[in-house]
Each structure stands twice: as structure tokens, then as C-alpha cells.
Write a protein that binds this DNA or RNA. Structure first.
Lengths: 206, 206, 206, 206
DNA sequence: AATGAATGAGCCTTCATTCAT
DNA sequence: AATGAATGAAGGCTCATTCAT
């Protein structure tokens, strides 16, 4: 679809680099980043081991790039998709649902986020802005603040709500991955929304 | 020769074994179980490397024991502590608070639970009963069912509530660990309880 | 770029593999396969330790290959060399002499055969066809049967003769190795032939 | 059965030492001396590992003592048993048969002789007099010389005869061990005697 | 730009040996 | 004399990284 040499060359370069990033995420998610080897990644990408080092400085660099580039892009994409929704409650729910969709479409990205990113402390400390969970939390806090300001939801603590939502999403995905796709993630999501909306306590008593 | 031979021998054996388990959990939690070496564990426990193999068959065995013995014991202890509380809502909250207390007291156990157990799929598959998160989920589901039956809370989906609670707890701890203890975990916990009790939607509107 | 790509690659691979096999046989023969280390073999072959694992799966695999490839090839070669000799007695003697020549030329192969193969029971059981001593015995039995059928030698038990010959050869080499090449192995061989031909008992008395 | 304290104490000491030597030979013969561990020997002897070091300086010392004491004693015993036989040919055959009997009675000693002793170069060099095969060879050479001097056998090379006999014996036992006792060792022994007595060559032709 | 053979540091594990009891 | 827990050096093997082609 590109129509000049410059873009093509760039695309060529980008394609192999992206090919490697995709292969790396899948391999890292499947075997765990420590157990996965450069040979595994190279094999999955159908290139020679040495080629990996033409695009990434080291195995650790490759791992960091997976987090900061691929994962970050996916999350940006999700957040952007929900920005046009005006009702904050709907926006949060849409964000939730879009993430679920990503998970179903590219499960290895979900596994990578829920497993690898969490344990990568060195990454989190060096690149706090790229921690997907932090991105999610910040996004929810922002949305919640708007919702409160507009009176759309009760004046609750936005940070607490964010933790509730993101934590729920995280473990929901974890459970779904563990169930190997057997769990009805949408049904649970809907139930979660109901609880959050009305609370658990009977109205008369609360 | 202190008390009697039997106790001494048993205590002696148990002590060194427990010493190793504690050291292992801390080391595994800090470096990740794959990156951590037996030498690290031995050094932390101030014994020689070979000694580890007097009490555990392999590095993997040591990791499994950390999960199935130490972690499981802590979780049993927490669940047991809350069993006497009659009000289901209070019981769930107490369970939450006890877990927070454990985390504050032995942060490396928390880190081990939130990070290592999650990625140890092989363990989870072989020993589903020892997965702490599953234990938590089951416990909350049970408690929620009771609460619903007694009319103490609305007839919501217990499984959804469990995912909400445990997921929140999990990420709350993760955030607290990342903040290196700076976050006011109790305040957030209280806010979470408020949200869960009354819901986010203004009464009149919902 | 010498001849053609195919041959070069093949030759390159074969050469390093053969280099390792030769080094391994010498090291195994000298130190014993259990005491010999991969580092020893690598050092003798002037490669890095890891290189061994590019050509062989494990230390045990390397040992098996020494037996099944190198040793077997040498023995095939000896047996083939003697096949054209028509007189069975001469053929047996030629076989004996050729083996002695091999021993003198590549003493470490001889030592490997007399020492390592003997103790490698697991190998013998799994690959009975590659046991050099068994190969020798079978060959001698076959030749002896022909010799008997043609009336060239007395109707003795071929199996007993095989054991006599191969056993003698084995220990003769062992003695020669122990004497560090000082023993006149051909002279003894000739004497052995004399004894076998005429027997030890004076004609009149027997 | 001893009847004074001194002897008893000595016997006590000797018994545990002998117990260890027996256990060691069996273990060394079964697993190979390099693969066998001190723990194996201690377990077989039903003593603690440390006890081994009360009677032997090191694992190597234990191995040397197995060769120089136990094996040597067995061989002395065999040679002594045949000394009274006047006819040299009968004496050699009796020696052969006695060794076969030892092998059948204590196969692990046979395996130890045929396998372990052979590969223990360091031992052979340091203690040439204790090499069982050398002892056998020397004995046969002596007997053969007598037989020749008395005209009982042809004036052959005694050394060649010795190598013939001992080599045959060695491989015969090896074959028998490999056959797991299925081979009729006596029948083959008899055939071997026939061949040695009369030779393989038809009288008229030789 | 691409390859993959070669490297060697580092890890898990074993086991001969010691020593406090 | 006897024990066996503890030690730590050494070996097999892996894999991130390099470099000649």
C-alpha cells in the first residue's frame, strides 16, 4: 500500500522488526521471558539467531521493546477507541469490553501483560509510563473524575474505582486464560457491571 | 538433649527446612524464580549449596514446596481467622484486611503470590488446590452465597463478586508493593468497600 | 569455494564431528569414559565445550557414537581386508595381524575397545551388534566353520576356537599396551599360531 | 569362635573392615568404580558414610584395597589349591576350572577382575604385583616351564601359552557374565582344552 | 542485511570428605 | 567407634552473544 521507495524500504525494515516483536511476544508469553531463548524467537520468526541482534541490542532490550512498543500501542488503541463515547460509565464499560476483545483476539498479548509485565520490576522502575496496568489505572481515574464532575456517578474515590476495575479486569482475564477460553467472559463482565452500578447492599439497609 | 530426642531431631530438621523455605520465598519473590539461583537461596539461608539438596529434590521441588506449604499455610490461616465472623459482609472485609496485614508483615510472601504463582502454570495445573488465588476465589464465592441466602446482600452473581474482590485485592497489593509501602492501603480498602456497598450509580438514576 | 557448496558444507560438518570423535576416543581411552570430562574432550579437540553439544546430544551420546561409528568402522575395515584370503587358517591369522597393526597405529582405539567397550554394559545391551568383541567372535566362528567344512582344520568346536583366538588377541593387546609398546607382539603372535596349529601335547603321547 | 579378648577385638575390627571390602567389591563391580558412591558402599554394608573413612583413607584407597587384598587373596587361594597337582597339564586345567568356580560362586568378583582391574591403570602401575591378570600369567608361565622341562608338553613358548590360556579364561568369563549365566562354561572349557592339546591342524598335514 | 557455527560464563546437581555429636 | 548433616569443588549442559562468511 506504500507508494514510494523510501516508505517501502522503511516498511521493509519495520516489517522484519515488527515480525520479531510479534514472535517475541508470543514466545515470551508462552514460555515465560526467562525460559524463552533467542533461538526460540528466531525460529518463530523464521530468521537466523544473529538477525535478532541486528534489530535489538540484547534479549533484555527485545523484552523491553515488546512492552514499550507493542503493548503500549495496543493499549493506546483501546483507549483511543473509547474516547468518543460521551457517557463516562459507558466509556468505562466499553474500555473493559475492548480489552476483553483484545484478549480474545491475541491471547498471547494478554498473557504477556498479566504475567510478564507484572514480574518485570526492572522495567517498571525504569519505564513507569509504559506499565500497561498503570496506563489503565490512570485512564480509569481520569474517566471517573469526569463522571463524578458531571454527576454521572456518585462522588466516590476515583482511585479506588480504578483499582476495582483494573484489578477485576486483570483477574478476569487470568481466569479466562486458565480456563483455556471455556469461561463466558462477557457474562461475568456484565455481572460485574451490575454489581458496580448498584452495589451489593440492599437499598433499604445501606 | 534439651527436651527429648524426638522433638529435637524433628525440630532440628524442620527448622533448617523452614529456614530454606523462607529464604527461597524471599529470593524467588525478589529475583523471580527462574532468575534466582540455588546459590542465592543457600546464601540467603547461610548454608552451603549442597544443603538445599538434603531437604529438597531439586530447584523445582523447592519452588513447589514454597507454594504448597508456606503459601497455602498462610492462606489457610487467614481464612480460618475470619470464619468466626458471622456477618458475611464483615467477614469478607476482614478477610481482605487480614490479607493486607499479611502483605505488610511479610511483603515477600505477597510478592511471591502475586508474581510467581501467577506464572507457574505447570504448578497450577498439577496442583489446582494450591493456587492461592483460586483458594481466595472459592472462599469468597462461598461467603457470598451465604450472604445472599441470608438476605444480607443483593442476589448478585457470587462468582462475579469474587472476581471483583480478589482482583481488587491483588492489584491493590501490587500497587502497594510498587509504591514501596508509601500507599495508604487501608484508606483505599475502605473506599473500595464503600463503592461495593452502595454502587457507583446515583440511587435516583439507577 | 573449493569444490562445491554441498561437499564443503558436508565436509566441514563431518570434519569437526570426526575431530571430536577422535579426540573423544583418545580421552575416553586414556582417562576412562566416566572420569573423562567434556572439557577434556573439547580441549583435546581445541574447541570450546559448547561446540561438543552442537554435534552430540550429550556425553553419553558421544560415547555411544565412538563405539558405534568409529570402532565399528575400524572393525568392518579389518574384516573386509581379510575376506579375500582363501585359506581359512591364513585368513584368521591375517585378521589377527591386521588387528595388531590397528592397535599399533591407533593405540587409543585399542585401549578404548579393550577397556571402555567391556564395561559399557548399557551399550552392549542396547546395541549388541556394535560390541566389537562379539563381532570378532562371530567372524572367527564363521571362518572356523568354513575351515572345518573344507577339511583345512580339525573338526573342533568353532565357538571354543573363537574364544581362544579373540581372548588371546584381547589380552595380548592389553599386555602390549601395559608394556608401553616394549613387547614384541609379532613374535608372540607367531608363537601363539604355532601352539594353535600343533597343540601343546607331544604327538606320540596324545 | 575366637577365644580370647585380643583376637575378638581384632576380629571385630577385621570383620567391619572386611564387611566394607565385600560391600565395596560388589558395589564397584555392579555400578563401576567411578559411578559407585561411598554412600552406595556404606548403604550396602549397612553403616554410616563416615564409618568408611575410619577404615579407609579415601574412595581410591578403598578401591586399591579391594584389588590388593580381596582379589589377591582369592587368586592366591586358587593357585594354592592347584599346587599339589603333579601333572602340569592337569594343574593348568585345574587352575582354569577353579577360576571358573570362583566366578560362578562370586560373580561380582569376576566382574570386578575383568572390568575394574583392567581399567585401573594407576593401580597397575603402582602395584604391578597385584594385577590379577599378571599373577595368572606368571603362574601359567611357571607351570608351563615345568611342563616343558619334564617333557610333559612340547617345547613351546611358555609366555605365548600363558597369554593363550589367561586370555581365553578372561573372555570366556566375560561372555558368561554377558549371557547372565546361560552359557555352558564347562563345556566350552573342555573344548578349549581339546584344541590346546592337539592343535587345530590335521596331523598328516602339519 | 543475513546467517548460524562457535564461544564460554553460569547454573543445577552430585558426591567425596569432614566434623560436631 | 559410629553417625550423618553439612560442605563446596567439579562436572554436564544451556544459551546469550559474537563474528567470519
Amino acid at each position: 500500500m506504500n507508494n514510494n521507495g523510501k516508505l517501502n524500504r522503511r516498511a521493509g525494515r519495520t516489517n522484519k522488526r515488527d515480525l520479531l516483536l510479534d514472535a517475541a511476544i508470543e514466545v515470551f508469553a508462552t514460555k515465560g521471558s526467562t525460559s524463552a531463548t533467542i533461538a526460540d524467537v528466531a525460529k518463530k520468526a523464521r530468521v537466523a539467531m544473529g538477525t535478532v541482534y541486528l534489530y535489538f541490542e540484547s534479549k533484555d532490550d527485545l523484552l523491553q521493546r515488546c512492552m514499550s512498543e507493542v503493548i503500549s500501542a495496543e493499549i493506546d488503541s483501546i483507549i483511543k477507541k473509547t474516547e468518543s463515547i460521551t457517557d463516562p460509565m459507558d466509556r468505562l464499560y466499553a474500555f473493559f469490553i475492548h480489552h476483553v476483545a483484545l484478549v480474545k483476539e491475541k491471547p498471547y498479548i494478554a498473557r504477556f501483560i498479566t504475567v510478564e509485565v507484572r514480574q518485570s520490576e526492572s522495567f517498571s522502575r525504569r519505564n513507569p509510563g509504559y506499565n500497561p496496568q498503570q496506563r489503565y489505572l490512570d485512564h480509569v481515574v481520569d474517566t471517573a473524575k469526569t463522571a463524578i464532575e458531571t454527576g454521572r456517578i456518585n462522588p466516590i474515590d476515583p482511585h479506588a474505582l480504578a483499582i476495582l476495575l483494573v484489578g477485576t479486569m486483570d483477574i478476569l482475564i487470568w481466569q479466562w486464560l486458565a480456563s483455556e477460553g471455556q469461561m463466558d467472559i462477557e457474562a461475568i463482565s456484565y455481572q460485574v457491571r451490575q454489581i458496580l452500578q448498584t452495589g451489593v447492599t440492599p437499598k433499604a439497609i445501606s
